[in-house]
Design a protein around this nucleic acid. Structure first.
Lengths: 201, 201
DNA sequence: TTGACAACAGAACAATCGTTCTCTATAGTG
DNA sequence: CACTATAGAGAACGATTGTTCTGTTGTCAA
């Protein structure tokens, strides 16, 4: 029973972590053990391995099935505050607890099929979607009822809720001032709304 | 004069790029050529190299001094669609032109002072801020009138619009069902709302 | 029909990588 | 003092890697 903490990380380790993070910012990858010797200022690969193993035990890095070292979410990220925090709270301590995350990563599952589309107009304002917001849209042709979809009507994108009326698909705005769109023929769906981003100022 | 575009990338390449990007979200690293054969659905390493070389010529990846492949900024960026786009548009053309961007980068100017705080309740619903949204808050003690601020009231975070009433600061909700908060004494401001993120599904 | 080029497949090889194992130096503890 | 971690050095070795070089298709244009 030692006095070391539960994660097993020490002060020395956090120095190495800092060096690793700095390297990662520059090169966006974790290099080989040999290169890490330089980065850490250490001469033996075996010790590098020991360090990395401990950093992974602390949750900062992990391994792919192929054995490559990769950073975890905790390695990067921005602290997500708990709802009720005390007044003098420190914004970014390197605390192990709490949730971390990167916005892009949270919103985007499949980068290759995801597009950002600026929102025009206020037809969805009751759903909290304002003019100037940016819609994160995952491109796919099929959607479920109740999804907010980007459909193509008259060669323009429209953001509406997908619904069904007497067996036919309709596009329902979230604003009483706008009419429900009942497309004749087929309804062309561009994608499904998976996220929303708004920038103030 | 051939019909190939200026970056030298083809339709096939953007397929491979997509696969690489999707792999990267999962593992946060570009694997070995051998592994990339699986990812791409290709049998020869030499061809993988050719593809990567071209993707790097197009500006999506580059090499570290050690020869490792790493993604560039362009690799992460999402295409930002123009407002009125034609129907049959391809989502991810491998063109260098057009606007790209990264959500984190857009929302966060000063990472060290920025925190993410989940929104509770519907007191700001008329401002399009819903329960469960995530507020991007830049920590600072001073704000302008009309800013949406995170203030500390009764040891809890509250998201309200900052206003002034008869020379005193007040916190105004964007929901008629909630009262205006008129703090006695000083008003403690935690930070200013600079962005909002919402995830559907 | 020939030729050129793009899109791959496959093999060969030296360099590098990760792993394991043994050894040393220093610091703290009782 | 002896004992035991911790922090690292160094070597050895098989597996894996990137690279290069040579073939094999398929397609399109002349």
């Amino acid at each position: 029973m030692t006095d070391s903490n539960s994660t097993g990380s020490s002060i020395k380790d956090s120095e190495y972590l800092a060096k690793l993070q700095d390297y990662y910012v520059d090169w966006k990858s974790i290099p080989s053990y040999a290169k890490l010797c330089e980065v850490f200022g250490i001469a033996s690969k075996s010790w590098v391995k020991t360090i990395l193993t401990r950093l992974s035990a602390a949750g900062f890095i992990e391994r792919t099935p192929d054995g490559m070292w990769v950073p975890t979410r905790q390695f990067f990220a921005r602290p997500l505050a708990e709802s009720a925090v005390q007044a003098g709270m420190p914004v970014s301590v390197t605390a192990t607890q709490g949730e971390y995350f990167v916005i892009d990563e949270m919103l985007i599952d499949t980068p290759s099929r995801t597009t950002l589309i600026p929102v025009k107009g206020d037809s969805m304002i009751d759903a909290g979607i304002h003019d100037g917001d940016i819609a994160v849209v995952e491109k796919r042709t099929h959607a479920n009822l109740g999804d907010i979809v980007v459909a193509i009507v008259d060669n323009e994108f429209t953001l509406k809720t997908l619904d069904k009326e007497r067996g036919k698909f309709v596009l329902r705005p979230a604003n009483p001032a706008y009419p429900v769109i009942r497309p004749q023929g087929t309804l062309e769906i561009f994608g499904v709304l998976v996220g929303l981003v708004r920038k103030y100022r």
